[in-house]
C-alpha cells in the first residue's frame, strides 16, 4: 500500500505560529490567542499523517495554514522544500486540496452539483466544456455517485452524498495532497465508515498523500501511518501508529487511547480520567500546558515547559522522557482543585 511512501517532505511547517487577537465582550481588551504555537511538522509523499487532538486545539487552523487560507504569524510553509507565500495560492491549489468537516456548509447551496464539482477545472481553465463534463462524470463514478446527480442541488442530498461531492471536487484536479479536516465527524455513524473506506481506496488508487485530521484517535488509527498529537497549539507527540500503542507514550496520548477503548469511543477525553475541562486557550496553563490534567504530573511540570525529545519515530514533549532532565525524580505534583 505504501510503496510510494518516501521520507521527502512534500509539505512542511517550520516553527509556525498563528496568533489570533480575540476580544471578550464588547469592552474587553483584545487578547492574543495562540492557536498554533511554534509547530514544525512534515508530511512525506505517500503517507497518511493523522493529526489528533480535542476540539479547539488548533487542528483546523493548521489545515488552513497548509492550504494557504491563513497566513502564519510566524514561521514558514514549504512545499518540496521551497518557501510558499500566501500569493501562491493558485499554484498551491492544483497540488493541495481540502475536504472539510461539514458537507452542509462546504457546498454552495445555490449551485448545482455539476457546477460545484467542475469549479476547479473552470478556475484553472483545464480543458473545454466537453472534457470538463466528461471529467465530472468520471469523478462521480469514482466517488460512487450516479451521474444524474449532476443536475441536482446540495439541499436534495444526504450528508454522505454531499461529502462524496466534496471529495469529487477535491480530487477532480488530481492533486497530490489532500487535507481531510474531520471529514466524517459531521456524518451519521452508519455513513462514516463508507466515507473512510472511500478515502482509503482513493488514496491507493491515486497515490495521494493525506493529512487526516480528527478528534477521534480510533478513526486516525484506522487510516494513518504516522500520527501527530496536538494539545493547545503544540504537537506534543509524533509517532508511528504502532508506536502509539506503546504504553510509554505521552500521558495525553495515553488518555486519548483510553478514551478510544471506552464504550463511548470518540467522545473526546474522558473527564473521569483527566479530572477537568479543556483549558481556555487565551490563558493556557503555565509550564507544561497539560499539567493540570496530567495524572503523571510532577512539581516542576507546572513551571518548566517540556522540550521536544526525539524518539526513534518522531518526538515527544514531556518531562518524563527528557533524560537530561534531572528533575525527573521529583515528587508528584500536588494538584489543586481537582
Amino acid at each position: 500500500m505504501s510503496t510510494t511512501e518516501t521520507n521527502h517532505p512534500v509539505l512542511e511547517l517550520r516553527n509556525v505560529s498563528k496568533t489570533y487577537t480575540v476580544k471578550q465582550g464588547m469592552f474587553g481588551k483584545p487578547k492574543p490567542l495562540k492557536a498554533i504555537n511554534d509547530v514544525s511538522l512534515s508530511l512525506n509523499r505517500g503517507e497518511v499523517l493523522g493529526l489528533v487532538g480535542e476540539s479547539g486545539c488548533g487542528k483546523s487552523t493548521l489545515a488552513k495554514i497548509l492550504l494557504g487560507l491563513e497566513d502564519p504569524t510566524k514561521g514558514e510553509v514549504r512545499v518540496d522544500g521551497e518557501v510558499i507565500g500566501a500569493t501562491d495560492r493558485r499554484t498551491l491549489a492544483r497540488r493541495i486540496q481540502p475536504i472539510f468537516q461539514d458537507p452542509y456548509s462546504s457546498l454552495n447551496p445555490r449551485k448545482s452539483i455539476e457546477d460545484i464539482i467542475s469549479l476547479p477545472l473552470r478556475v484553472h481553465n483545464i480543458g473545454d466544456s466537453n472534457s470538463q463534463d466528461k471529467a465530472v462524470r468520471d469523478i462521480l463514478d469514482i466517488v460512487g455517485l450516479p451521474q444524474r446527480v449532476m443536475r441536482t442541488y446540495p439541499s436534495q442530498m444526504s450528508g454522505g452524498q454531499r461529502q462524496r461531492v466534496a471529495i469529487a471536487r477535491a480530487l477532480i484536479m488530481k492533486p497530490e495532497i489532500v487535507i481531510c479536516d474531520e471529514p466524517t465527524s459531521a456524518l451519521d455513524v452508519s455513513v462514516q465508515s463508507q466515507i473512510l473506506n472511500l478515502l482509503n481506496d482513493l488514496r491507493a488508487e491515486f497515490n495521494l498523500t493525506y493529512l487526516f485530521i480528527s478528534h477521534d484517535l480510533a478513526v486516525v488509527e484506522h487510516l494513518a501511518t504516522r500520527v501527530a498529537v496536538m494539545y493547545l497549539g503544540r504537537i506534543v507527540e509524533e509517532s508511528s501508529v504502532g508506536g502509539l500503542f506503546d504504553t510509554s507514550g505521552h500521558p495525553y496520548t495515553q488518555a486519548l487511547l483510553k478514551s478510544v477503548l471506552t464504550p463511548e469511543a470518540g467522545k473526546g477525553v474522558p473527564d473521569t480520567e483527566l479530572g477537568m475541562e479543556y483549558p481556555n486557550p487565551i490563558a493556557p496553563p503555565s509550564g507544561c500546558h497539560f499539567h493540570p490534567r496530567c495524572p503523571m504530573a510532577m512539581t516542576h511540570c507546572a513551571s518548566i515547559p517540556p522540550r521536544p525529545v526525539p524518539t526513534p519515530e518522531g518526538h515527544v514533549e514531556c518531562h518524563l522522557f527528557d533524560s537530561e532532565n534531572d528533575h525527573n525524580t521529583g515528587a508528584p505534583l500536588v494538584r489543586e482543585g481537582v
Binding site: 494557504g68 493541495i96 472539510f100 462546504s106 478556475v123 466534496a166 471536487r169
Partner: peptide, 17 residues
C-alpha cells in the same frame, strides 16, 4: 465564514470571483 467560501479559495478562485 461558510466552508464553501474556504473551498473556493482553496481551489484558487480570485477574490472577485
Amino acid at each position: 465564514g461558510r466552508e464553501y467560501v474556504a473551498a473556493a479559495k482553496a481551489v484558487g478562485c480570485s477574490t472577485p470571483r
